[in-house]
Design a protein around this nucleic acid. Sequence first.
DNA 1: ATCGCCTTTGCAAGCGTGTGCAAATGCTGC
DNA 2: GCAGCATTTGCACACGCTTGCAAAGGCGAT
Lengths: 337, 337
Amino acid sequence: MVTKVFVSAQEVAEKAGVSRSAVSRTFTPGASVAPETRKRVMEAAEALGYHVNHLARGLMRNESGIVCLIVSEMGTPYRSSLIRAVTQHLQNSGKIAMLINTDRSDGSVDRALRQAIRYRADASIILSGQPDKSITQLCLKNGQRLVLINRDDAQPGPFRINLDDKEAASRILTAFVRAGCRRLAFANSEVGTPSLMAREHGFVAAAAALGMEVAVERFGPTGYEAGKVVAQRLLTRKERPDAIFCANDLLACGVMDAARHQFMMSVPDQLCVAGFDDIEQTSWSSYDLTTFAQPVEAIAREAVAFLAEPGSAEDDGQGRSIRLHAELIWRGSIRGG
Amino acid sequence: MVTKVFVSAQEVAEKAGVSRSAVSRTFTPGASVAPETRKRVMEAAEALGYHVNHLARGLMRNESGIVCLIVSEMGTPYRSSLIRAVTQHLQNSGKIAMLINTDRSDGSVDRALRQAIRYRADASIILSGQPDKSITQLCLKNGQRLVLINRDDAQPGPFRINLDDKEAASRILTAFVRAGCRRLAFANSEVGTPSLMAREHGFVAAAAALGMEVAVERFGPTGYEAGKVVAQRLLTRKERPDAIFCANDLLACGVMDAARHQFMMSVPDQLCVAGFDDIEQTSWSSYDLTTFAQPVEAIAREAVAFLAEPGSAEDDGQGRSIRLHAELIWRGSIRGG
DNA sequence: ATCGCCTTTGCAAGCGTGTGCAAATGCTGC
DNA sequence: GCAGCATTTGCACACGCTTGCAAAGGCGAT
């Protein structure tokens, strides 16, 4: 048997004995249609298994309801929880998420944005990587909205959501000092994402303001294994640190495991550790890590709210930028509290 | 300024001095178009920032290139790694993933499938939950392909990918016995997913074949906290188990943490533990858990390969079913080895 | 009965694309 | 020079939907 095609509004109209427009209006919120007509249409549609073709609707309305999520390393705890929150909020506001994987290669994000354009996505939300200026301009010109999450230094135009990374770094420094720590260190990856660097610079600057030095070590990707390597390097220095602020929870877990299992150090007695993101694992009792919570729900809410706003995508060529607060989640990896 | 609309093939055709069909053919692989014409078209398209409208193309071809991923708890390590693998494979074969969040509520999966139909997805891949039979039939009738992953007991029709859960359970039992364990237990959630139950039943059956009993405890959702609760219940029994097979790595992490930190037991000396999924955290040195690896890449490959196959979605009303192997990853949570 | 108003309905145009068909073009071999 | 053929091109229709517009119908007030 040849693949059957989907039911069309025409067939529903015939079955219900009305015009095709009536069917269309029945499924268009706010359209003018008599209750009796609507009922007949609904019944016919139900019987035939009719579903509005959103491809065609998007074509007409010039509004597909699709929002592209562009993200790399989506298997990571923080990323996946953000994806979950965003898709959920999108669904709640009647939109739908399209997911595109990127890698660190050049043009990866640009290719993703091209794909978003092809599917006439209403908007794209970029969680990773740096789009090229020319392509973001193309998106905006075409009326496609753009949201950048945690991509601090990106060019203006898109809507940008960031955290108070530097201020958080300064708060955690205070906590370390109160705990009596004096030999400070910062564990980072070599990726150089704006938010990671903001935490590093914020921490170093806050320490400098107190006349303290920070041992900074960077290695590899922003993950657990890199954390182990960084810890090895830091803990074999002549001046062994007694406090390590990690750019990321994954790094922090690696740092803790290396400190405990390879260097037989006790956390927090001999070493205080803090991370960033508040991924689920930090609350597990093997880690019990003091960290900053990414306001995942708030980020998703703000991003989706922006998409729902009326007005052109580029009405204010400047774009807008908001900064959300990262709350300090106090657990057991720092003394005192 | 009013939101500008996207560039159409018409405009490209005018700029290139050819007909609209020529533009269309230029972007249709395998279409007949002279090299010179193609070149002119490509240049005009590039200059204007033209991108084929996949909504319209999908409308014409009756093939959108969209594949729906239907999944609950997508923030979970195993789920998110599967999402990553599947989206990547889809992209490699020229398709694109649409992501829909479901919860445990009734009809949640059905609503997701309806959404897939509205966007005329070429296929839907279900990673969680149980679709209603009527809706899956609707999908198949409409030529939409369906893939069920780890949903063992689902009705026939869709393409089904499962693991050898029961056999794995039997293998891990052997390992426990070899390690000298005699008081066996199984830690499960109350969710009752087919694959989780298959592991439980396989373990109990294999033990029975050796004349051994298994203490089974189930609680809550399939996560870390539930694992802790289950461990508390198991380890306060009169007959304290010396081996626990967990339906899931998350449960296993909870079990290990409870055993170590609440009951001060040593793993694997006093208690052997095994899990399932091989999520990244199991390789972290705080856990170092012996577990079974979900063949995530193979699952994604098989699923996408199925979608690429020619032939109607329902040509063989029975659907097909394959069973993949879960490899035992030997680490340090079981004695010996 | 007539008018004006509001609600509902059908018509038809249009969204941006793919593709069958026939016409046009160029080339080969005689 | 011409028939025969392969390649390329344009026309026009189709895909399934939305929506402006005008006509139709109902109803109360005059």
